[in-house]
Nucleic acid binder design. Structure first.
Length: 381
DNA sequence: AAAGTGACCAACCGCGAAGCC
DNA sequence: AGGCTTCGCGGTTGGTCACTT
């Protein structure tokens, strides 16, 4: 879906208005014109990408240095990949690094030649919105074995913040997200298997021009996805609660072939995830695990599976209205910071959400993984 | 064909860090 | 040491386009 370049906002003056700056000087805001770009490029050619504020002070452009820098970084740099979507490999790198660094877009962008922090940020934001919508979407009732599974008692719903979501069909889903400070449960769910389970339509995007109904694939895996080492961005960390607790969520369908990651950097290479994951009631992953540099040792991630913890507050907030009971403003899975009336606040005492998770989930889980540690070598920057 | 929705993305804002005086 | 300026980053907004209904 190629998009015409330049489709942009018209904020701060409708593309030509001159706003009065605090000092009374006219500062232009809004979209850049070709002539302005030319001036900016000339400045960079002559002085290099620095001294941004002088552009305005010299009267070259009625733009703030900040605006000039942004324009250069995001649009005028010669090495940018403009007008091209994130590749599967880039997506994978973003996912890995976001899990490792958090929302450090500038840092992540340094691993992606030709991409800016804004690119990465926008990509991630779009992806999260899509995830949130996927989680929020009413899903049709399942049939067969799944429909017979009992949902947890309502009482346990109340105390399972951020872990359970009901929908119009009275289904419950455990959205198991990591609580880095308590116990990081990363559940990597093949979204295509998920979609198949709930007969959710597949939106594979441009890689998948000819959508094939799931039913037509004998393996149950969308052929497009099966051919993609890293699947579509719509991978969702959504596990039907009853299945999560019963272990049915270990998918037997064919999983996408795994191409060993070409991306790597000098961080942790060892792993103990293989030791941890089997302890979760999802069965032994039958696919190779990607090593997650900088993650607590062993926090590997399967290709085509996302880190459920990557779901940010946005996604969770979008889930809130779906919850049968208003969740307390305690989000143990989402880290120590969360928005609360616009103010970031430390969550109160952690609830006993463990009590509401399947007891067998913890059967052999004795040790809590250590909190995320900074990358061993971030000096590559 | 029109309206609605979602994806994309340019560019602003606020804040904090770094550098300078 | 402290204030000011500049720069960089992350969050957010909102416009446009493509696709769907």
């Amino acid at each position: 879906m190629a998009r015409a370049p330049g489709g942009g906002r018209r904020r701060g003056g409708g593309g030509g208005r001159r706003d009065a700056a605090g000092s009374g000087e006219a500062v232009r805001k809004g979209p850049w014109m070709a002539e302005e770009d030319a001036v900016l490029l000339e400045h960079v050619r002559a002085h290099g990408p620095c001294d941004w504020s002088s552009i305005r002070s010299k009267g070259l452009l009625p733009r703030t240095g900040k605006s000039c820098r942004l324009r250069w970084v995001n649009k005028l740099r010669p090495d940018l990949k403009t007008g091209c979507k994130f590749s599967a490999e880039e997506e994978r790198v973003v996912l890995e690094l976001q899990a490792q660094f958090g929302n450090k877009w500038a840092r992540i962008a340094t691993y992606l030649p030709g991409r800016t922090d804004n690119d990465v940020k926008n990509f991630w934001s779009t992806r999260q919105k899509r995830l949130a919508r996927l989680l929020r979407a009413p899903l049709p009732a399942r049939s067969g074995r799944n429909s017979s599974a009992k949902a947890p008692a309502a009482s346990s719903l109340e105390s399972r913040p951020a872990a359970t979501v009901g929908n119009d069909h009275n289904e419950e889903f455990a959205v198991l997200c990591p609580q880095r400070e308590i116990a990081s449960f990363f559940i990597y769910m093949n979204v295509n298997a998920l979609m198949e389970m709930f007969a959710v339509d597949c939106h594979q995007g441009p890689c998948c021009p000819d959508q094939v109904p799931f039913g037509s694939s004998s393996s149950g895996v969308h052929p497009c996805c099966a051919a993609t080492p890293f699947m579509d961005a719509q991978n969702a960390a959504l596990v039907p609660y009853d299945q999560a607790s019963s272990g049915l969520a270990s998918f037997n369908g064919a999983l996408p072939p795994f191409a060993p990651a070409t991306y790597s950097h000098a961080c942790s290479s060892s792993s103990n995830a293989a030791q941890l994951l089997p302890k979760l009631p999802f069965g032994e992953p039958s696919y190779p695990l990607l090593d997650y540099p900088g993650m607590p040792e062993g926090w590997n991630m399967a290709p085509g599976f996302i880190n459920a913890g990557a779901m940010d507050d946005l996604a969770y907030q979008e889930l809130l209205p779906m919850m049968a009971q208003p969740a307390p403003m305690v989000f143990p899975f989402f880290g120590t910071e969360h928005a609360q009336g616009g103010v970031k606040a430390e969550p109160p005492d952690a609830p006993d959400f463990f009590d509401d998770l399947p007891p067998d989930m913890f059967d052999s889980l004795d040790q809590v993984p250590p909190p995320l540690s900074p990358p061993a070598t971030s000096s590559g920057f």
